[in-house]
Amino acid sequence: MGVFIHLIMINNIQSFGVSYLDPYIPSKGNVSNGIFAHPIWKREKRDDFLDTKRPDKQGSISMKWKI
């Protein structure tokens, strides 16, 4: 019971318009999983929940054979 209410309350808290648990919610638009950092060559796009004007973080990567 308490766990559920806590989850609801934490999801309700927002930091700069983004819910606290948004990085951890499995979603297609989420590039990162919120726990492990991807290698630099994989960080091409920004996460969907940020709702940015430009979803691309960096240009097309050099190490394409690693995808």
Partner: peptide, 27 residues
């Protein structure tokens, strides 16, 4: 009463939170 009380509190807190919490619990 406990289960329904929690649901009422959840609805008072917000609908967005309910849907996001559901997305965490269901998988």
């Amino acid at each position: 009463f406990i289960f329904l009380f929690i649901a009422v509190v959840a609805n008072f807190i917000g609908r967005k939170s309910i849907i996001k919490t559901n997305t965490i619990i269901i998988p």
